[in-house]
């Protein structure tokens, strides 16, 4: 029962693994370490709490090649994170007509990590959106344009720029809010 062996440590937690694996990307990154760790914590929550897949961290903007204001996550949710109200109406109409259920395939989403004690501003949000593509590039994309043209004008490249604002609290609660770039009418949940 002696606490002797440091050799037989318990296996690393999944969060520890994520933090370890992100170390390589931190080196040479233009962002401070705490922003990387913030992103890692959010990734952990997305992966294990919300079953997101194909998660990756973006350091540079694909539009300008400049560094993004902070590391930004992209990933594939298990189900569609956002359906535009007009698209939903279109889909319901079509379902009513054909009697067949239309499956909402998930789309890759941006996730902006933040902490509850931060202060944001319009300028900062604008800077983030200006560095982002409409749809994140990455693995796990499924191009279903051909098979489901219903509501296509609200999906993929046609959608309005949006991201999920993930806010972390010290008690490890993470809340997610959808932020649209511009005026988008609300969903009638």
């Amino acid at each position: 029962m002696t606490p002797s062996a440091t050799a037989d440590l318990p296996p690393a937690s999944s969060l520890q693994e994520i933090l370890e694996s992100s170390k390589s990307s931190i080196e040479g990154s233009p962002h401070p370490v705490y922003l990387h760790n913030l992103a890692s914590t959010i990734i952990h929550d997305l992966q294990f709490q919300h079953d997101w897949t194909a998660l990756s961290v973006h350091i540079h903007s694909t539009l300008t090649n400049d560094p993004l204001p902070r590391p930004i996550i992209s990933g594939l949710p298990p189900k569609r994170a956002y359906i535009h109200p007009d698209e939903q109406i279109e889909i319901i109409k079509e379902e009513h007509k054909t009697g067949e259920k239309i499956i909402h395939k998930p789309e890759r989403e941006w996730v902006l990590p933040s902490h509850i004690q931060e202060k944001w501003s319009l300028a900062k949000f604008a800077a983030v959106f200006d560095g982002l593509d409409v749809v994140p590039s990455g693995t796990g994309d499924n191009h279903d344009e051909e098979e489901n043209p219903i509501g296509q004008q609200w999906r993929g490249k046609n959608r309005q720029k949006r991201l999920l604002l993930a806010t972390l609290h010290d008690d490890s609660t993470v809340v997610y809010y959808i932020v649209h770039d511009g005026i988008v009418k609300p969903r009638q949940n």
């Binding site: 994170a81 604002l165 997610y176 809010y177 959808i178 932020v179 649209h180 609300p186 969903r187």
Partner: peptide, 11 residues
């Protein structure tokens, strides 16, 4: 003027 709309993410 620049605007942003915020809705609950539902998760």
């Amino acid at each position: 003027v620049r605007t942003f709309c915020i809705e609950w993410g539902g998760m």
